[in-house]
Design a protein around this nucleic acid. Structure first.
Lengths: 155, 155
DNA sequence: CCCATATAGTACTAAACTAGTCCTAGATTA
DNA sequence: TAATCTAGGACTAGTTTAGTACTATATGGG
């Protein structure tokens, strides 16, 4: 039903790999080898993640990539936004669209709210949890505590 | 970020229109005219909705379509399933896929859970709410009561 | 100074999917 | 039996996605 693109999925795999060794500087080739993803694809995605400030990069010999901030501070929503942009569930849910049936459309607002709800849920999921590193501490993760993922509260 | 196809969106528009007059038998042409959607598209979608048992049809003169059950008993999840199938957020979240990086993939399970969470939220939204007909009674809708949309409870 | 190793950015191609159209067949009723 | 409706499938054009290739730029070591 709902889908994220393969590339976005790959990006989470890449970021999860990096999250597992936060101190290590990875080259694109290393990540490709260790995740079994194609090298050019990994490279392309890392560039994009860099542009969106999810990873830091250093060029040249001994260069590579590092997470821009701790995995606990990177959310699923940020990753999706970085790769797929602020696209919405439906076209008319995006900012400046004007679909031609707008006047007779009863549904638009409802989808927007569903959309917002899903966004919120994705904002509560961190890379730490996506990477399966949430630790099992006293503080259960959004994914583990049964569920929100969505928070109660005013829309 | 997340997207449903235009056709799915159209389908909700169609169903919402029908929900507004539950007693009335609509022809495909009427719905097209009243929603400003293209007639062949409406026809195609209604056929599909019929196959998935969301609407009843009668052929012949004075034939047409009716909702198969009250709008309150049709959920957003059912509509999405009818049109887009049980596709999942990622490929590996679907039933019988085996992606080649499975062994080194840390992320799969997490996406599956996110996926499930979103499904649940969609199951709580009825066509009545999508159509903006939820009435404003004493019982606030899933969309209006601030939010779940996701229910607390074990995953 | 020059070369090897990295990332940065852009352009391009092939494949897959989506949206939309058209045509033929079957059912119902006046 | 003719008119009106749905059923089903085939087909086409357009868009999006995934993947590749190429050039430019930065860094550090011999």
């Amino acid at each position: 039903m709902l889908r994220i693109s393969k590339l976005t999925d790959y990006a989470t795999v890449i970021l999860a790999r990096m999250a597992a060794e936060p101190e290590r500087r990875f080259t694109a080739g290393q990540i490709a080898g260790e995740t079994h993803l194609a090298a050019p694809t990994v490279s392309k995605l890392l560039k994009q993640l860099h542009r969106r400030a999810l990873v830091n990069s250093t060029r040249g010999l001994h260069g590579g990539y590092l997470l821009a901030r701790p995995a606990a501070q990177i959310t699923a929503a940020q990753i999706l936004d970085a790769l797929e942009g602020p696209v919405a569930l439906t076209e008319c849910a995006s900012s400046e669209s004007h679909c031609c049936i707008e006047s007779s459309c009863l549904v638009g607002r409802a989808w927007q709210r569903v959309n917002l709800a899903i966004r919120r849920s994705l904002q509560e999921i961190t890379l730490l949890e996506l990477a399966g590193l949430s630790g099992g501490g006293a503080q259960p993760s959004a994914l583990d505590r049964g569920f929100p993922v969505l928070k109660r509260g005013p829309l």
